[in-house]
Nucleic acid binder design. Structure first.
Length: 352
DNA sequence: AATCCGGGGCG
DNA sequence: CGCCCAGGATT
């Protein structure tokens, strides 16, 4: 039996019952595919339900404010996905008459949709014969066929794409694409796959040559930078407000909310912090500082953030000249999209 | 071609 | 701690 047929035969009795597998609505499939980018099914599932309920169709999604979408996305990470979805939704309303496209060539032009997602939506919603190429597919193909070319180089991606296209069952691309991804997720897992029960074990190159743990090949990487954030909690007791700022572009957490901060490349003591030019510009010389929490390590894909939260009082009257922050009522804080680091702090210190 | 962009789970 | 996850955009 062919590789493709074996994969499909494995799928039917072993597949998970996932909500986006009960529809061919490209909008619903789009929601699920963007949520699942670099995200495990179990982590994305609750977000998928919330988005479908809040925005049941493309029109309601496009009509929402970006901040509202970001707030619903809060905690899931890679927030450019949410911002790009909003742009894509508006593009569908403006350029496609509100009808979500189902062809690969139309989909690939939408913000946040690349080769993988375009192939996924086109095949799942309209059975277009385009192969998906995600982490699961790279792994299954490299192991089964013994491809030692790195999966994260242009040369490797081209090689794997050609193989993926060759293996694609053109008669049933939707089922085949689902099958090979599910096979990678459940059977041909990254770590410690149980090859003894794999239906492909006798013809699998990696299994037969004992290379399961060394495939796929991936060029290393990921040097993490250390950043030290000193967050200032400024309460206005009379109005029940707290100081908040919105992050700008070209850095992490674009358009999300946090406290006023001073960032350093190296750790500082509290007295050193008070003597910085930045501190004086923000608060003036008479301001008082009290540590709320010791440095908390927050790990992102390319950086380690060490965040210290400090309470500031007795700030001078002419502080905040540059409008670094706004005051927001504590009761309204929940409506703003905040990174995990911030909303976890608010929760832990009962400010929310 | 390389780097950036989150957060979580697992061994 | 390092690796990986239904990747894509930017430089």
């Amino acid at each position: 039996m062919s590789f493709s047929q074996e994969i499909i035969n494995w799928y039917h009795p072993n597949k998970r019952d996932l909500p986006w597998r009960h529809t061919t609505d490209p909008y619903i499939i789009w929601l699920s595919e963007i949520i699942l980018q670099q995200t495990r099914v179990e982590q994305g599932l609750p977000y998928f339900y919330r988005f479908v309920e809040q925005y049941p169709n493309i029109a309601t999604f496009a009509a929402a404010e970006e901040g509202e979408i970001l707030r619903l996305w809060q905690g899931l990470g890679y927030y450019s996905r949410a911002r790009n979805m909003h742009k894509a939704a508006k593009m569908v309303m403006d350029n496609h008459d509100g009808i979500f496209p189902t062809t690969y060539d139309s989909l690939i032009k939408l913000n946040g949709i690349g080769g993988y997602t375009a192939a996924a939506i086109a095949s799942f919603s309209a059975n277009e014969a385009k192969p998906v190429l995600d982490g699961n597919v790279f792994r299954v193909l490299s192991r089964y066929f013994g491809i030692e070319e790195a999966i994260n180089t242009p040369k490797g991606k081209k090689l794997f794409y050609e193989l993926a296209l060759e293996m694609l069952d053109k008669e049933q691309p939707a089922i085949y694409n689902q099958s090979i991804m599910e096979f990678g997720a459940l059977q041909c897992k990254p770590q410690n796959p149980d090859c003894q029960i794999c239906p492909l074990r006798t013809s699998c190159y990696a299994k037969q040559t004992n290379k399961v743990n060394s495939l796929p090949v991936k060029i290393k990487g990921r040097i993490s930078k250390d950043r030290y954030f000193y967050y200032f909690v400024i309460m206005d007791e009379k109005s029940g407000s707290i100081a908040i700022r919105k992050r700008g572009p070209k850095d992490i957490w674009e358009n999300m909310y946090e406290f006023p901060l001073i960032e350093q490349a190296a750790p500082l003591s509290i007295s050193e912090l008070k003597n910085t030019k930045e501190f004086n510009e923000l608060f003036g010389r008479g301001a008082e500082l009290h540590i709320i929490s010791t440095p908390k390590k927050h790990i992102l894909s390319h950086q380690n953030i060490y965040a210290t939260f400090l309470e500031v009082s007795k700030i001078s009257k002419d502080s905040n000249k540059k409008g670094e922050w706004d005051y927001v009522l504590l009761k309204d804080l929940d409506t703003l999209a905040k990174p995990k680091l911030i909303f976890a702090f608010l929760r832990d210190y009962n400010l929310q």
